[in-house]
């Protein structure tokens, strides 16, 4: 219901970079724990308060803007409900990095303007490590451990979309450009 208010809300940074504390989760974090079905029909803000509650009740109340969610294999498997990615974005999560993602969640995250990066070394990150994530460089810097992890690069068009703040602001930009070109003709 509140989709228009939160989809693609700009982070103020056109780079998509994020800096924050790591929240580490295991393998197979599914969309039912990210966006519990019980709250799906109600107000989105209420749903977001229950994000990941079944596996870590301290997450939603404790996560700070810019914090990084770190997953294992198959992060976001299950439903196509994009509230799973939207809840993380709404709570201020700066990026999600994981060894692998559920395919629909990965698309949804980028569409929401939430940086999602595949990182084989995600398992080296511990809870509360200080991280800096740069999607354009495809790089995670772990300041706590003084380590650097390479991520799979996002294809250029998807990097542009996530830097624009997601699919909706990206389409807005493209439609405005088209209108300008039409006017100039």
């Amino acid at each position: 219901m509140s989709a228009a208010g939160t989809i693609g809300k700009a982070t103020g940074k056109a780079t998509g970079k994020a800096t924050g504390k790591a929240w580490v989760f295991g393998d197979d974090i599914d969309t039912d724990v990210l966006a519990p079905g019980l709250y799906m029909k109600g107000p989105f803000e209420e749903l977001a308060r229950h994000c990941l509650e079944a596996v870590d009740p301290t997450f939603a109340p404790g996560v700070a803007p810019g914090d990084i969610v770190v997953g294992g294999l198959n992060f976001g498997i299950g439903s196509s409900r994009e509230q799973a990615a939207q809840a993380l974005k709404h709570l201020g999560v700066g990026a999600v990095v994981a060894k692998s993602f559920g395919g629909i969640f990965f698309r949804n995250a980028l569409n929401m303007g939430l940086v999602a990066l595949v990182c084989a070394d995600a398992g080296r990150i511990s809870a509360a490590d200080d991280l800096a994530v740069d999607p354009a460089e495809g790089l995670i810097v772990n300041k706590t451990r003084d380590e650097r992890y390479a991520c799979e690069a996002l294809p250029p068009q998807l990097l542009t979309m996530v830097q624009d703040g997601g699919l909706v602001p990206h389409l807005e930009k493209k439609m405005a450009q088209t209108a300008q070109e039409d006017a100039a003709r």
């Binding site: 989709a3 989809i7 693609g8 196509s80 409900r81 994009e82 990615a85 629909i104 698309r107 949804n108 569409n111 929401m112 068009q157 997601g166 699919l167 909706v168 389409l171």
Partner: peptide, 18 residues
């Protein structure tokens, strides 16, 4: 294949998807 709602909105606007 399955997509989320914003992807779907993009399809409804453009008739296309990647």
């Amino acid at each position: 294949f399955g997509v989320g709602a914003t992807d779907m909105a993009g399809v409804l606007v453009t008739g296309e998807t990647w």
